[in-house]
């Protein structure tokens, strides 16, 4: 009997419910569009070519980090070490003679640092059962120490021109770094949504016990997610160093928080097993637009931080309500 009732319900609901489901599902995209329209109305210069390309340049490194952060959050984790990895990768970029001949070497060293950090994080979390918060906090601190020990306080040296171009130049008006972000986004979206690996990520995050009973190597899946996050953070660090040009010990500062905020805002659930790369990227876009319009409207730059803080709590509360 209850079956019949339910079937009836689902049939009757299809009309109004579909509209509501649509709104729920695309609330984020709608928010982004509304935000852009509002910003454009309030400040005409918002949609100017210069400002748009500026925003896209800023969005690219954040987007790359968010992709990795999403993987980690999907398996019930959190990666606080991304900013530290970014800064270390940036320091690596200036640690050679600043010529393009070293570009490949820099790439290998930087990405290597990211992958190893991710591996350590993953091993601590999966094999030692350390809480992700503490594991990535600890690697963050260790990396920070190694970095400042290596640079003896302040890094000197130049970012090779290759990375300068990657970080700040455009091709046909599209920033190189955005192209890279786009390629990565597509690649990792496919990995997550269309492969058995991606499915195992969702199952492991959704229910680790079930994953084990299904013969899925949940530890390996978890470790891989942290490695992906580490590697992407290192790449983002290289690109960001090319964008800012000068490297200090704190390139990427705040990216750990921003990437978590963007992912959560984009519907990646901290409880694991739910969310998409696309959602996280929309979250990142909203964050960048909000930051930018704060300045465009003429509010002091400090308001960016305040709004960020409010947005993360509101977004999280929104998803709690939606889940209930």
């Amino acid at each position: 009997m209850s079956q019949a009732v339910e079937t009836n319900l689902s049939a009757a609901a299809s009309g109004a419910e579909n509209a509501r489901n649509f709104l729920r599902q695309y609330a984020l995209h709608i928010a982004l569009v509304v935000l852009i329209i509002l910003s454009a109305l309030i400040s005409p210069s918002f949609l100017s070519g210069g400002n748009v390309s500026n925003m896209l340049l800023q969005a690219a490194p954040l987007g790359i980090v968010v992709i990795g952060q999403a993987f980690v959050i999907l398996v019930r984790g959190l990666d606080l070490s991304v900013a530290s990895v970014m800064a270390t990768a940036a320091v690596a970029a200036t640690s050679f003679n600043g010529q393009d001949t070293d570009a490949l070497l820099i790439f290998v060293v930087a990405i290597g640092i990211g992958l190893i950090t991710g591996l350590v994080n993953g091993l601590l979390v999966a094999k030692r059962n350390v809480s992700p918060f503490l594991a990535t906090l600890a690697t963050m601190i260790v990396l920070q120490g190694m970095r400042s020990a290596w640079t003896q306080g302040a890094p000197s040296g130049n970012v090779p021109p290759f990375y300068r171009i990657l970080g700040s130049d455009s091709i046909y008006g599209v920033p190189y770094n955005l192209v890279i972000t786009g390629v990565l986004a597509v690649f990792f979206s496919v990995l997550l949504a269309k492969t058995t690996f991606g499915r195992k990520v969702y199952i492991t995050g959704g229910n680790p016990v079930t994953a084990r009973l299904l013969g899925i190597n949940a530890d390996w899946i978890t470790i891989t997610c942290y490695v992906i996050s580490g590697g992407l953070a290192a790449l983002a660090g290289l690109i960001l160093s090319g964008f800012v040009g000068i490297v200090d010990n704190w390139v990427g500062r705040g990216f750990e928080i921003d990437s978590i905020v963007a992912a959560v805002m984009g519907g990646v659930a901290l409880s694991g097993g739910r969310g998409t790369i696309a959602g996280g990227l929309v979250g990142a876009a909203i964050l960048v637009v909000v930051f930018n319009s704060v300045l465009q409207i003429g509010m002091p730059i400090q308001m960016q931080i305040i709004i960020k803080g409010l947005v993360i709590v509101i977004a999280a509360a929104f998803y709690v309500r939606r889940a209930a």
């Binding site: 803080g309 509360a317 709690v320």
Partner: peptide, 26 residues
């Protein structure tokens, strides 16, 4: 916020931290 918005303390206090830092800098 933890009790009534039912948001995890990690997120609540992270957000609060940002708000307070912004106010400090203002």
């Amino acid at each position: 916020a933890v009790v009534w918005l039912r948001v995890h303390p990690l997120i609540v206090t992270l957000g609060m931290g940002a708000v307070l830092q912004g106010i400090t800098l203002l």
